[in-house]
């Protein structure tokens, strides 16, 4: 069908167009609100700035379609194929994208607020700057299983998302808004979280081995039993974070802010804490074998039964600290 015919018939009141072929057609700026194009072939079609809110696009083929600036709010797109589609700056607020194929698509600066992304395949897609607040990403093992593997998620807004147990090894979430995200048991090995804001996030038992957290913000984060071996965390902000029983051997924590954090029973062997601020922190039974604590600020810290015998302690500030034997530091 050619685009003019479509628009004519649509303006005349028709909305049922399922199963038609519109591949490669130019429909930029077209007003097609609520149209039914389910099962249609729209591959490589141009729909820039098109109005498609509440449209039915279930099982449609939108491979390589140009949808930048399109308005797809509350559209129904379950099982649609959006592989390699361009959705730069598109609006998909509240859209139903369950089981859609969005692999290698561009979702740069897209609005995905409250979109339903259960079972969506987002592998390799570019979600830089996209806003996913309130989006449903929940794994429902028997039915859906969405994946963000290999997706680019820089500067993405995932505040308060539920990513419990998510598989996100090597994901790039630098600069992202991850405040209060639930990452419990998540696989974030080798992930890039530099500059990300994880204030108040839950990272209990998450695996962040080898992850990059340089300059990340983790204020008040809950990270009990987290795996951070060999992670990079220079200039990280861990103020008030809960790191009890964490595995942090060989971690790079230069100039880190760990004020009032709790590191009880944590393994910091061979970690580099040069010039880090650990004032008022709790290091009860913390294992600091061969830990580099040059220039560390330990004022008012609690080091009862901490293992410090082989740590490097040059220029450490000890004022008011409680020493491993329980006594208060005396100059």
């Amino acid at each position: 069908m050619n685009p003019q015919t479509l628009i004519q018939r649509y303006n005349a009141g028709e909305t049922e167009f399922s199963g038609i072929n519109l591949s490669g057609t130019d429909l930029h700026g077209a007003d097609l609100i609520g149209i039914d194009l389910s099962h249609s072939d729209l591959h490589s079609a141009t729909l820039i700035f098109a109005y498609l809110s509440r449209a039915r696009l279930t099982q449609s083929n939108l491979t390589g379609a140009r949808l930048s600036g399109a308005n797809l709010n509350q559209a129904s797109m379950t099982g649609a194929n959006l592989h390699n589609a361009d959705l730069h700056g598109a609006s998909l607020q509240g859209a139903d994208l369950r089981s859609a194929d969005i692999t290698l698509a561009t979702l740069l600066d897209a609005n995905l607020i409250e979109a339903d992304l259960r079972g969506t395949d987002l592998s390799g897609s570019n979600l830089t700057g996209a806003c996913l607040r309130g989006a449903n990403l929940r794994e429902e093992k028997r039915i859906y299983s969405s994946t963000l593997a290999g997706a680019i998620l820089c500067n993405v807004d995932l505040q308060a998302a539920n990513l419990k147990g998510a598989d996100l090894p090597k994901v790039n979430m630098s600069g992202a808004n991850l405040r209060e995200v639930n990452f419990r048991n998540a696989d974030l090995r080798g992930a890039n979280l530099s500059g990300a804001d994880l204030s108040g996030a839950f990272l209990t038992e998450a695996n962040l081995t080898g992850a990059n957290l340089d300059s990340a913000i983790l204020k008040g984060a809950r990270m009990e039993r987290v795996l951070l071996t060999e992670a990079r965390m220079s200039e990280v902000n861990l103020e008030g974070a809960l790191l009890i029983d964490a595995k942090m051997s060989r971690v790079q924590l230069e100039k880190g802010n760990l004020k009032r954090s709790r590191l009880n029973r944590t393994d910091l062997s061979r970690a580099n804490l040069r010039n880090a601020d650990l004032s008022e922190a709790e290091l009860i039974e913390t294992y600091c074998a061969r830990t580099n604590m040059t220039g560390v600020n330990l004022s008012a810290a609690n080091l009862v039964r901490a293992e410090l015998s082989t740590a490097i302690l040059t220029w450490v500030e000890w004022k008011g600290a409680t020493m491993p034997d329980g006594s208060e530091y005396r100059a």
């Binding site: 700035f49 700056g89 598109a90 600066d109 897209a110 609005n111 700057g129 607040r133 808004n177």
Partner: peptide, 18 residues
């Protein structure tokens, strides 16, 4: 920055605003 971007996206087409 995140809040501002969120608010703009809620009320305008992201591409137009951009």
């Amino acid at each position: 920055a995140f809040e501002v971007r969120l608010e703009v996206m809620k009320y305008a087409n992201p591409l137009r605003a951009k």
